[in-house]
């Protein structure tokens, strides 16, 4: 499995990481190396095996429906790189 520059560009776009054009090929080669190593998993017969999604072997616990959080806009906004009053601010989004 080898990642061509177009594929790297597509993944980088999905992941919202800027990758310059001249980095697409070397990065692709590097990622391909990792994927090639991962290919050995194809040796394993996984027929009929149920995928294991996590290490915790129990059912989900539920929380009671009470309001016990929030009400602290300042704390929520205190680390924001740009804020306008009680809002986070970002460059204008066109819908």
């Amino acid at each position: 499995m080898s990642l061509d520059p177009a594929t790297v560009r597509r993944i980088a776009r999905l992941a919202r990481i800027r990758v310059s054009e001249d980095q697409l090929a070397p990065l692709g080669a590097e990622l391909s190396g990792i994927l090639a190593w991962i290919e050995q998993l194809n040796e394993v017969n996984v027929d009929g095996v149920e995928p294991l999604t996590g290490a915790a072997q129990m059912a989900l616990r539920l929380r009671e429906d009470v309001v016990n959080d929030g009400g602290n806009a300042d704390a929520v906004l205190s680390n924001a790189p740009d804020r306008a009053g009680a809002f986070y601010a970002v460059p204008k989004v066109v819908e």
Binding site: I38, L41, N42, V44, V46, V49, E50, P51, L52, T53, A55
Partner: peptide
């Protein structure tokens, strides 16, 4: 990739 890895995870457990 992902589903296969999770199946192998089951085998490891």
């Amino acid at each position: 990739y992902y589903i296969r890895a999770q199946k192998i995870r089951a085998l490891i457990l």
